[in-house]
Design a protein around this nucleic acid. Structure first.
Lengths: 136, 136
DNA sequence: TATTAAACCTACTAAATCGATAGGATAATT
DNA sequence: AATTATCCTATCGATTTAGTAGGTTTAATA
């Protein structure tokens, strides 16, 4: 299941992508428009900023804005920042790999085999979609 | 992320699929062979039995066995019983649909749009794989 | 320069979920 | 009757999630 954090983060990015120009948008505006708790959204936008997706300006007239064109914001990258691994199991994750403690041999593991297929198909979607594709 | 329940459940099903004949296999045998806590596995096998995947026999010589041929056990069905929805978001789930409280219109929701694609690709994998495909 | 408006930051918390365990009840074999 | 196995339900501790609190910093503007 997708966390609310990811869901809200994607919604906020989409909202910003819809804005004309580079005018900063305040958290409050996004949170009201998208029905997201303002305080929660605050922390989400913060991590998006710290990871290079958003810029911000403090004080009056401040807010958040996209640092790149929507078409240059890859959804796999967004997912990894907000949600973490795209794979359903750490042992098939490309960016968050971890061995399974219980599994003696990945090559003969039935779960491993199946989850690699799922990862590949999900990944190909996220890798081939940008924020621009999500804007209505 | 896949729960341990699902992971262990699939491993146990695969283990049973590897057995020759319909001889019941005891929980203890599976749990030791697959490094799964016996008590935890007990509850997992119970739900697999209650959902028509496994049969069981009590007492000496008892245990669990597959009720169907591995090639007739669809992995989408297994996933739905063990893990729940295949979709990442309830609003795109076919079998566990729920409206998002925050979302005024699914048709223009960016998350919805993306997650439908992901669901479709995951689903086509799970629907086209059976337990037989997972046996090494 | 004082005020106001906004993001920034860290810690905290309530609730839910997860992984696992406890401990007996039931049923089948020998 | 004794043994062996599943059956069943409740509980528990740890972790994660979603959200809140409450102040700090920075920038614009009157």
């Amino acid at each position: 299941m997708l966390s609310k954090k990811t869901k809200y983060g994607i919604k906020a990015l989409t909202f910003l992508a819809k804005q004309k120009g580079q005018v900063p948008v305040q958290i409050e505006v996004i949170s009201k428009s998208e029905n997201i708790s303002q305080k929660f959204l605050e922390t989400i936008l913060l991590t998006l900023r710290k990871n290079g997706f958003l810029g911000s300006r403090k004080g009056k007239g401040g807010g958040y804005y996209l640092l790149k064109e929507p078409k240059d914001i890859n959804m796999a990258a967004v997912m990894r920042i907000l949600e973490g691994p795209i794979a359903l199991v750490p042992c098939v994750s490309l960016n968050f790999y971890e061995r399974c403690a219980d599994c003696p041999d990945e090559n003969t593991c039935s779960v491993h085999k199946l989850m690699i297929e799922v990862r590949d198909s999900s990944l190909s979607i996220f890798n081939n979609r940008t924020l621009a594709d999500l804007v209505p």
